[in-house]
Amino acid sequence: MEHRKIIHIDMDAFYASVEQLDNPELKGKPVAVGGNSQRGVVAAASYEARKFGVKSAMPSAKAAKLCPNLIFVPHRFPRYRELSQQIREVFFEYTDLVEPLSLDEAYLDVTENKIGLNSATLIAKEIKSKIKERTGLIASAGISYNKFLAKTASDMDKPDGLFVILPEEAEEFVAKLPVHRFHGIGRVTAEKMVKAGIFTGRDLRKKSLEDLKLRYGKSGQYYFNICRGIDHREVQPVRETKSVSAERTFERNLYEMEEIIQEVDRIANISFNRYQRSKASDGHTITLKLKYGDFRQVTRSKTQEDAINNEATYLSIARNLMTEDLLDEEGIRLIGVGISNFKKDEEPEAPSQLTIDF
């Protein structure tokens, strides 16, 4: 069977790198994009900051303790979108099969490409070079015959990486790969696997499909496949947004209503900003998600007839969903806020392609 040729491009420390690009005084210094406040969160960290343990989604207060010389800069999403569009234009010079995952990463299927080049590795090198030439930014690339392996490969040699996993190498590569480096296996699941004696892909491969489904539910089939290097998902250039959300797991459980409301406001604000950036069409339903200290989970939703397109309404609904009856003696370990139920436009007379920002 002829293998597909998939490239995963991942911009290196994208937001922070843009800030260093636009402000040369930040070059070579530890930079965090995000608010420098007690309730602030790091949106992105430069590689200089990562050496101190600073990571995205980390509370700004903790990041400042880990790296006393950390420089906080506010985010500038219009600028990030501008550069993302330039990067996207490079992709389309090679293929129309581009699946954006976010502003800073995408899958490309170059099995059949616009320049008639048989080598996906050479195409990836050209793409990296053009991105650097046109934007001044550095990208890492992973190349393989499916999306899982390409995504995994792009993370192997950062920054400025180019890593190839050939079909004949995949089985042994995955066998040696620690489970925490598997794309699609989160930190909590990886910790559970390690406790169960599953340290690598080889260990995971010893488990039957029935066992994995019993342990991990619907994800069991995915785990069974990827530890064998199997991933049949195609690169999908059109992705319909079903929901936009944000959530946070706290370092300690929350018990007091005042503190919980503050977190709901902050997470709702992040969620609303993502909603705006996604350009999803006219959401009507806000959902509040809570996870308690004993891992029980509840959700509360409110649907409005009118579209929810302004921040004040968005935050007000999210806050009102958090009522006293949702407090619990186990405390709250996670809060999430999201919007869904997007307006469906009338069917066009002829098929049209959805445009997605990258």
Rank of each mutant, 00 (worst) to 15 (best):
P237V: 07
K218M: 05
I226W: 05
E169I: 09
G217L: 14
I185Y: 02
K151Y: 02
L254M: 06
S219Q: 06
E191D: 13
D211Q: 12
K206V: 14
L204C: 08
Y145V: 02
I230Q: 00
E234R: 14
G229Q: 01
E172Y: 07
F173N: 00
G136D: 01
D160R: 15
G201T: 08
Q236V: 11
R215K: 07
D203V: 10
K195C: 05
G197L: 10
Y223L: 07
G217S: 09
G136F: 02
G184Y: 03
E168H: 06
Q221P: 01
Y255A: 10
V188Y: 12
G201F: 02
R205E: 03
Q221I: 14
S154D: 15
L209I: 08
E168N: 12
R228N: 08
L212D: 10
D203L: 08
T249P: 06
G161I: 02
Q236C: 13
M193A: 07
R202P: 03
S245K: 10
I198Y: 12
G142N: 14
A150P: 05
Q221M: 08
R233H: 10
D157E: 09
I143T: 15
P159H: 04
S154C: 09
V174F: 07
A150T: 04
E247Q: 15
E240P: 11
N253Q: 04
D231H: 09
F250D: 10
P159S: 07
D157C: 11
V238Y: 14
A141L: 04
G217Q: 11
L204P: 10
I198G: 09
K176A: 11
G161W: 04
K207S: 06
V174I: 11
I226M: 10
N225G: 11
G229Y: 01
K218V: 02
T152H: 04
S245T: 06
Y223R: 13
I198N: 02
T152S: 04
F250A: 15
S144L: 05
Y222Q: 08
L254R: 15
V244N: 09
D157S: 03
A153M: 05
F173T: 02
A175I: 03
L214Q: 05
I138Y: 05
P159W: 07
V244R: 06
K195R: 12
T152E: 02
E169Y: 15
R181Q: 09
G220N: 03
Y223S: 01
V174G: 02
D231A: 04
N146K: 00
K207I: 01
D211I: 15
I230F: 04
F199G: 04
K192G: 01
T249F: 11
L177N: 06
K192F: 06
V238L: 14
F163V: 10
M193Y: 14
L166G: 13
H180C: 11
L137E: 05
V174C: 13
A246H: 14
I230K: 01
F148Y: 01
T200E: 08
Y223F: 15
V194K: 08
R252W: 06
V188H: 14
G136W: 04
E168V: 02
E171I: 07
V179T: 01
G217E: 14
L212C: 03
K207R: 04
R239E: 12
V164G: 03
